[in-house]
Design a protein around this nucleic acid. Structure first.
Lengths: 215, 215
DNA sequence: GCATCACTTGACCAATTGGTCAAGAAATTT
DNA sequence: AAATTTCTTGACCAATTGGTCAAGTGATGC
């Protein structure tokens, strides 16, 4: 049997394997409730081996959270490369809904971290998130000044988009319970997406000319 | 010195004192991260005394969560006693925003519990929340059928209201960081409330005839 | 004054926690 | 094939955890 391809990145592969298990455990139990032993079990590795790659629990946790933060920021691209509010805000909503669907555990870890006062990633909040938010507020304000949408406080508009889209990840369990114990299927997600998009865009007085992105 | 009035409810007062401390600790650390010792310290009582009133950590936690659930449901009253969608939905949004402002810790405990799969209050979800939600969906659907608001999936509309209003409690820390490290003041809250209300009602095609409740 | 009750609390316990370590197994380099 | 580096792992440790318990204190009723 030949050597596995990509054998050089053995360390990276192992780290990914551990990070995936850690994300799951942190999402389900929170930082305090998660145990290194459980992360070890889920990843199928002995506990001491986890500590070989990540020296402390907090190290591992920090890596998980910052991974999520990167995904968060990627959704902003559609915002920037847009020609106007319909494409920009609509696309941003679609992108964030898609993240909630594909990375619900990551979203939960993030929510948990922030809810508990962001003890680990406060610097991220103060640096990256603050400046990112200010930049987006400027873009929205310009759209308002140009009469492309109803006057609104851009800051609270962003909060609304964040909360609604992330709700589908963070409160996944509650939503499934209210859905008869079943996960949302394709049609449900399509419904959710178009409802969120429609209400917000109409609420902003933006004409949504059916250019939904279909991830 | 005369006997304190209401001395008979000594037990109830002590329980309240403990529950208040517990709510704070559970909100800040999550169930797993919270320790009975810390709850004892915050409430100013020896740990063994806490266990006299609440036999286990889970008992105490259950009491905290169900207290919050009751407050949750109270906000629904304005929904029922309404004459139409403007008053019903608008009032519900106002009431839930007010709860987020007055009981942010309770909201966090609830969010944490649901995010981790609702291990303790799953029965509440399946019983009370499911039937409450179905009742409210019927009301909204009737408004839609009567042409009082734009056709919308009532279920996802409820999710939107829940997520946006609770966001101001659950992500309080993030919001404060984005607010220059300062808590929202009266004007900020008024701004938040009217923005949320305006976007959602306009998004539903409801004429909001300025009957905001001023809690 | 005495008995019964509710309450308080320091000391304690078994179990679990995050983290260490040394001995070795594999892989890589020379 | 020897040497060196990277990785693996069971056994272990000090600290902390939720929870117990028995000896007390204070009040209430008789």
């Amino acid at each position: 049997m030949p050597t596995r391809n990509g054998s050089k990145n053995k360390r990276l592969e192992k780290e990914k394997q551990i990070l995936l298990a850690a994300e799951k455990v942190f999402a389900e139990a929170g930082f305090g409730g998660a145990t290194m032993q459980l992360i070890a079990d889920v990843s199928g590795l002995p506990k001491a081996n986890i500590h070989y790659y990540f020296s402390t629990k907090e190290d591992l946790y920090r890596r998980v959270v910052s991974n999520i933060f990167d995904i968060w920021l990627q959704a902003a691209e559609s915002f920037d490369e847009s020609s106007g509010p319909a494409e920009g805000i609509g696309g941003y909503i679609d992108a964030k809904m898609e993240i909630s669907r594909r990375h619900p555990m990551g979203s939960k870890v993030w929510a948990s971290e922030v809810m508990h006062g962001a003890p680990v990633i406060q610097d991220y909040l103060e640096d990256v998130l603050v400046s990112w938010t200010e930049g987006r507020i400027d873009v929205i304000q310009r759209w308002i000044d140009d009469g492309l949408m109803e006057p609104t406080n851009p800051r609270h508009l962003l909060y609304m988009i964040w909360s609604v889209t992330q709700h589908y990840a963070d409160f996944q369990h509650q939503i499934e319970t209210l859905n008869g114990g079943q996960p949302l299927d394709d049609a449900d997600w399509q419904d959710a997406k178009s409802n969120v998009r429609a209400i917000i865009l109409r609420g902003l007085g933006i004409d949504d000319t059916g250019n939904e992105t279909d991830a």
